[in-house]
Design a protein around this nucleic acid. Structure first.
Lengths: 216, 216, 216, 216
DNA sequence: GATGAATGAGAATTCATTCAT
DNA sequence: GATGAATGAATTCTCATTCAT
C-alpha cells in the first residue's frame, strides 16, 4: 500500500525502525530497514497481522530471514514500529482540526480534516486495519494504547463543545463522529466497499456537518 | 458463556450447528453442541478468528478435541455456524427498519431500530467483529461471504432514498450511518468507552436523525 | 544409560514427568512419558544439555515432535524433570551416611555410602553430567539449587565432627571429600577414565578413610 | 578481563593466538587479539563452550564479527588457543611436584604444588571447566584432546608410586587426589562456597597428606 | 585492520486435524 | 457419544560464518 500510494510523498524514512539493538545504521542498513517496513506494511495490509508470515515480509523485502531478525526481534515488533508511525500521524491529526461552525468556513475546516484522515488511511490503512484486528487480543499494542480513537474523539469534542446539538454530551457525540469516519474509511481501505475518495470525503463531511448543525 | 449470562436471554439452542454427517442429536449431543457454540462465541470474541485456537474452544467447552471434530469439520465451520446465527438476526434487523422522517414518529422508528441493533450487538458483537476481520483475507466465510455492513447499509439506503440530503448518494450516506452505529456499539461492547446503553442509543438516534434531517 | 543399567531396578516410573498441563495420564500416556524420560536421559548423557536436540530425544523415544511438546514445554523442562529425580535421590543419599569411625565398622559404613553414590551415578550420571554442564550458565536448574554438593557435604560434615583430623574445619574437610568422590565418579561416568566400579569404590573408600583417620 | 584484574598478574600476551593465515601482527592487531582472548576466557567461563556465542565474545571484546574471523577460523579455534595457554601451564604444573613424604618437607612440597594449582585455577579455571565439559562430546578440542585430569594425575602417580597405601593402584589414588583438588578449587572459583584461599590450600594439603600417609 | 550487514541451514515450537479405544 | 493421545507440516527464531566496503 504505502509503496503504491505516493499520495503524500512520505518515502519510508526508516526513522521508526527500532534496529534490534539500537545500533546506528549506515546507508545500506537504512535501505534494508526501509524495505522491511515497506514490505511489512504491504503484507499486513494484504493478510492482516495473524495471517502475515515473516516469510512473506522477507520475500517482499527481498532479503533473508536472518536479516529480518537483525532489525526486529519478531513479527510483533515490526508491527509496532509501523503502528508507531501511524500513531504519531494520528496524534498530529488530532491536533489539526480547525474551528467548526455551521457556515462555509466551518464546513471547509471539517472537510480538510476528514481529507487528512482519509490521507492517513491511504498511507497507513494497512497498519490501521491490522491494528484493529490485533486490538482484539492480548497483544499489547503497547504504549500506543488502546485509546487512539479516544484521543481523536477528545480533540473533536473540544471543537463542538459550544456548537453541539440538543443537550447531548459533546464527548459522546464526538465519539460517534469519529467512529463513523474511522469505520467508513476502514471499510473502504479493506475493500469492503468501493466508494471513490472524493465521494467518501464529501459524504462524511456533509453528514457530519448536518449531524452537528443540520443540513445546509 | 453468553447464553448463561443472561445478557439477552437467548439460550444457545444449537439449531445452527451443523453436526458433521448430519447426525440426529439426542439430549447429550445437543448439550455438547451448545457448549461448543457458546465457547466458540466467547473465544472468537476474545481473540478474533485467527488467534482463536481450537484448543481454547475445547477447553472453554470442557470437552475434547476429538469431540470438537465430531461436530465441526474444522475451525472455520464452527465460525460459520456462529456467523450463520448472526446473519439471520442481521437479516431480520435489516428488514425491521421503519419509515424514517423528520418528525417524532420517524425518530421513534429510528430509535427502535438502533435499539435492536444494540441488542444484536450485545449477543453477536463478538462474531460480527471476527466476521469483519475475517473478511480481510482469503477465508470468505463461505456462503455468508458478502459484506456484513453492506447488507445492512442497503436496507437503510432504501429508507432514506426519499429523505436524504443535498445530492448525496443515499447508498453512501446509509453506509456512513451504519458504520457509525456499528463502530460506536463495538467500542462500547469492547469496553473501550463507558457509555450507558441508553445514552448510546440516544446519541446515535439524535445524531443520525440530525444527519438526515437536521437537528430538531 | 538408565535403560541399559538395570543396576537398581528403577524402571522409569514417569512419576517425575510434568505432563504439560498436569493432566492425569492413562496407560498409553504413561508409557510415552516414560519413553521420553528414558530417551532424554540417554541423549543428555551422550551429548550434554546444549548439544542435545529435541529431535534426538524424539527419535530415541520413537515419537513425534508434537508429542514431545505435549509432555514438556521445552527441552529445559524435560531436563528439569530428570534433574528432579536425581535431586531426590541425592537428597536420600545425603541422609544415608552411617557412623564414621577408624575401625572396620566405620569403614564399612563409608564404603556402603560411596557405593550408593556410585550407584546413583550409574543411574543418573547422564543427568548429573549435564547438570554440571548446565550449571555454568543462566539456566536456573531451579529449586534444585546450585547447592546439591553443599547439602551432601553438610551431611558428611556432621559425621566427622567428632572424628576429624588436626584442627581443620570439619565442613571444609567434608567438602573436599565430597568433591573428590563426586568428581571421581563424574570423570568415570563421562568416560574420561576407565577404572572398574569396584576399584573406584575401593580407592575412594580407602583414601577417604585414610584422610580422616590415617591408613589402616 | 582476567589480564587486567591482576588476579595473577599474567597480562594476556596474545602469544597463544593463532592469527588466521599466520599474519604478523602490529601493535593494533596484538591489542585486538588480546582483547578477543580475554573476552573468550570470560565468556567461556560464564557460559561454557556450547552456550557461549561468538556474539558474546565479540561484544565483550568491543569488536565486530568480521574481526573475530580475522583472528580465528571459528569458535573452536578460539577455544583451542585458550586451552593451549592452559595446557602449557598445566604441563609445567605437572612437572613441578616435588618429592612426597610423610615428613614436613614432603608436606611442604605438596603444599607448594597445591598452591600453584590454585594459582593456575585462578587464571585458567574458566577454560579448564569448559575444556572438561567440551570433552563430553565429539569436539575433541583438537590436538589437546587427551584428558586434562589424566595428565595431571599421571604426574602425581609417579610421586606416590613408592609411598602409597594398602595395595591400591597409585594411578587411581592419584586420580582421586587430583579430582579432589580440582573440584574443590572449582567450587571455590565458581563461588559455590566461600573458603579463603589459604584455608583451601591448608585443607587440601592436610587431607591429601593424611590420605597418603595418615594424619600427622 | 576493521566493521556493519547479510546469509541460510538448522533447531525449536505451534496447532489443526486424525486416530484408537 | 466421548476422549486422550498422536501427528507432522508449517512457522518462528538463532547463530556461526561470509561478504563488501
Amino acid at each position: 500500500m504505502a509503496g503504491e500510494t505516493g499520495t503524500a510523498g512520505t518515502a519510508r524514512t526508516a526513522r521508526a525502525g527500532t534496529p534490534a539493538k539500537g545500533r546506528a545504521l549506515r546507508a545500506r542498513g537504512q535501505a534494508t530497514l526501509a524495505r522491511l517496513l515497506e514490505a511489512g506494511s504491504d503484507v499486513f495490509a494484504a493478510k492482516g497481522f495473524h495471517a502475515a508470515r515473516v516469510d512473506d515480509v522477507v520475500k517482499a523485502a527481498e532479503t533473508s530471514h536472518g536479516t529480518f531478525y537483525l532489525y526486529f526481534a519478531n513479527k510483533e515488533e515490526l508491527f509496532q514500529a509501523l503502528a508507531g508511525e501511524a500513531a504519531e500521524e494520528l496524534g498530529a491529526l488530532a491536533g489539526s482540526l480547525g474551528e467548526l461552525s455551521p457556515d462555509a468556513a466551518g464546513e471547509a475546516a471539517l472537510r480538510t480534516w476528514i481529507d487528512a484522515f482519509a490521507d492517513l488511511f491511504e498511507r497507513y490503512g494497512a497498519v490501521l486495519q491490522a491494528w484493529i484486528e490485533a486490538e482484539t487480543d492480548e497483544m499489547s499494542v503497547g504504549i500506543l494504547g488502546t485509546d487512539v480513537m479516544g484521543r481523536l474523539a477528545a480533540s473533536v469534542a473540544e471543537r463542538i463543545e459550544t456548537s453541539s446539538a440538543a443537550g447531548l454530551e459533546p464527548a459522546v457525540v464526538a465519539l460517534a463522529i469519529v467512529a463513523m469516519v474511522e469505520r467508513f474509511l476502514y471499510l473502504r481501505a479493506s475493500g469492503q466497499h468501493r466508494v471513490s475518495r472524493s465521494a467518501a470525503v464529501d459524504t462524511l463531511t456533509t453528514v457530519t456537518q448536518a449531524a452537528l448543525f443540520g443540513p445546509t
